[in-house]
């Protein structure tokens, strides 16, 4: 294999992985220990694959494979976000050699704490996508017919928008945010799926948007066409659960795997809402 950043001669023949398991929503959770044979250049995904293939705990008991989310395995889809040794990050880019170098006692995997757990490491991040809808994170084009090229853009403009546009809605920013509280509803017995979904959406709509959605609002406000609907997005940022909930802990920008300047977006949103509020006060 390709030479790793450090040598392995002191690596153990196997290592322990502790997984916080939960059978379903509302069920109690418990830690389960797994013993994994060491190989160089593993990542947490290959560890989970090994656990699935083993189907046996460290104590030799049969167990069900751990459920987890993943897709691209190259840190562009955002699916495999979880807590690795207590830190929110993508499992695919969490390299075992590095994790063991930092903490030889093993690796601890837990689901994200700000979203309802569906099973084991699988969580429901619908609230984040709902937040994108709240801030109208799209360009209002007339239609999809041919109307020539889009507006010309300076390199500077593109270099501002591109990093924001790399956001993969992975949820790291909100997971680490001390102001982002978990919203988890339980379905009433007499409720249909649609009714429950409706109630859930309403709860999501009143809760904090989080850094990702705020940053997306700035992405679209910065686009010449998107700018035409900037007011709508700013209204959404000023609604309950909007920008004002931010407490400037700035964990979002520190944990963002794409290094998106989220706090710049937040400050820009602050500036734009300030002007918007003044305009609203004095222009009508």
């Amino acid at each position: 294999m390709i030479a790793p950043a450090h040598d392995h001669h002191d690596q153990p023949s196997s290592f322990e992985v502790r997984v916080l398991r939960q059978a379903g929503p509302g069920e109690p959770s418990h830690w389960e220990r797994h013993q994994i044979t060491y190989e160089p250049n593993l990542n947490v995904i290959s560890v989970l694959q090994k656990i699935a293939a083993q189907a046996t705990t460290a104590d030799g008991k049969d167990t069900t494979p751990v459920a987890w989310d993943c897709n691209c395995l190259e840190e562009v889809c955002g699916a495999c976000t979880m807590l690795v040794n207590g830190q929110t990050r993508q499992a695919c880019s969490a390299l075992v050699d590095k994790l063991l170098a930092d903490d030889p006692s093993g690796i601890e995997l837990a689901p994200m704490s700000k979203f309802p757990v569906l099973r084991d490491l699988v969580v429901d991040r619908a609230r984040m996508f709902r937040a994108l809808e709240r801030v109208h994170a799209w360009i209002e084009v007339d239609g999809y017919g041919d109307r020539g090229a889009g507006p010309r853009e300076s390199q500077e403009g593109q270099e501002f928008r591109y990093p924001l546009s790399e956001c993969m809605t992975c949820g790291c920013c909100v997971e680490a945010c001390p102001q982002y509280a978990k919203v988890e509803l339980t379905k009433h017995v007499d409720e249909t799926d649609e009714q429950f979904e409706k109630r859930q959406e309403q709860a999501y709509d009143e809760s904090f948007l989080g850094a990702a959605a705020i940053s997306q609002a700035m992405l679209f406000n910065e686009h010449p066409t998107g700018h035409m609907n900037a007011g709508e997005r700013l209204e959404a940022l000023m609604a309950p659960g909007g920008l004002q909930v931010c407490g400037n802990a700035q964990n979002c920008v520190s944990v963002c795997p794409k290094e998106i300047p989220l706090t710049t977006s937040i400050a820009k949103a602050g500036r734009q809402t300030t002007w918007h509020a003044f305009k609203r006060l004095f222009d009508r």
Binding site: Y144, R147, A149, R152, S154, Q158, R161, F220
Partner: peptide, 18 residues
């Protein structure tokens, strides 16, 4: 052109073209 209108941040030349 359509993708450009939808806001895809295509890399730009110094004059602002794709």
């Amino acid at each position: 052109d359509l993708m450009d209108r939808l806001g895809v941040p295509f890399n730009r030349t110094p004059e602002g073209f794709r």
